Simulated scan of single mutants.
Amino acid sequence: MRAMKKNTKGFISATKIAQRSFCEKQLVLDQQYGRHETDVQRQRRERGEEEHLRHHLEAQRYGSRRDSRCFIATELYGPLAKETEQLRQFRDSFLINRIWGHLFISAYYELSPSIVRLIQAYPFVRSLIKPFINWIVKKVSRNG
């Protein structure tokens, strides 16, 4: 019988929030008798907690006023990758200060979710787009 860990990370996991709305009694039973879960349930819970922590740390890092959207780079490299960060920096320090940059950013935010859906649905699209985005990252990092 394993007792529930105390929350020492300073946040409530999304899993715990969902459990509270789903089954308050389950939380009480877990607290009194320990948590009983299968290996698959444990792995899924741990994966969810890791993802929640990553999201929490990213939100702290960027704050609520910073626009962290970078859909295509996030899909290709991950939300915390240096390439994604370089593209965000380029947007925030260069593009945002130009009229045509604002137009580009608006068009990007309009089109990129559809591009990400294509990348997810058709893996070969990733192999077509990634070399181009790699090239952009190289250009941006030289000028940054």
Results as ranks from 00 to 15, higher is better:
61 R>D: 01
57 L>C: 12
62 Y>H: 06
49 E>N: 15
69 R>M: 06
56 H>Q: 11
68 S>M: 06
71 F>L: 08
66 R>D: 05
52 H>D: 13
45 R>F: 04
64 S>E: 15
75 E>D: 07
50 E>V: 11
44 R>A: 15
67 D>G: 11
51 E>K: 07
70 C>I: 04
41 Q>S: 12
62 Y>K: 03
41 Q>F: 10
79 P>I: 01
61 R>N: 05
76 L>G: 07
46 E>N: 11
58 E>S: 09
56 H>S: 02
43 Q>T: 10
56 H>W: 14
43 Q>L: 14
85 E>G: 02
46 E>M: 09
54 R>E: 10
75 E>I: 06
50 E>S: 09
87 L>K: 00
65 R>C: 10
77 Y>D: 01
42 R>P: 01
67 D>V: 08
61 R>I: 07
52 H>I: 12
77 Y>I: 05
72 I>K: 00
41 Q>G: 09
44 R>V: 11
70 C>L: 02
67 D>L: 12
67 D>E: 15
44 R>S: 14
81 A>L: 03
88 R>K: 05
57 L>T: 12
59 A>K: 14
48 G>Y: 02
77 Y>C: 03
49 E>C: 13
84 T>V: 08
85 E>R: 11
54 R>N: 02
40 V>R: 10
75 E>M: 07
87 L>W: 00
43 Q>G: 09
67 D>T: 13
57 L>P: 09
40 V>W: 07
75 E>A: 11
60 Q>W: 02
50 E>H: 04
60 Q>M: 15
66 R>E: 04
79 P>Q: 04
70 C>T: 01
73 A>K: 01
60 Q>S: 14
41 Q>R: 11
59 A>L: 06
60 Q>H: 11
48 G>I: 03
40 V>I: 10
65 R>M: 13
84 T>F: 01
54 R>W: 03
44 R>I: 14
78 G>K: 05
67 D>W: 09
74 T>G: 11
71 F>R: 09
81 A>S: 13
47 R>Y: 08
76 L>F: 12
66 R>I: 11
71 F>A: 12
84 T>Q: 03
86 Q>C: 15
84 T>I: 04
43 Q>M: 12
76 L>C: 11
57 L>A: 02
78 G>C: 02
54 R>D: 04
42 R>Q: 10
68 S>E: 02
61 R>L: 04
81 A>I: 03
80 L>K: 07
60 Q>A: 13
47 R>A: 15
52 H>Y: 02
43 Q>V: 06
54 R>M: 06
53 L>N: 00
60 Q>P: 01
80 L>V: 08
48 G>C: 05
87 L>C: 05
40 V>H: 07
76 L>H: 14
47 R>S: 13
49 E>M: 09
83 E>H: 06
58 E>L: 10
55 H>E: 06
47 R>C: 08
67 D>Q: 13
52 H>W: 08
63 G>F: 08
87 L>P: 00
50 E>W: 09
47 R>P: 00
79 P>M: 03
73 A>T: 00
58 E>P: 04
74 T>Q: 15
48 G>R: 08
82 K>G: 06
71 F>Y: 15
81 A>G: 07
72 I>E: 00
75 E>W: 01
81 A>K: 03
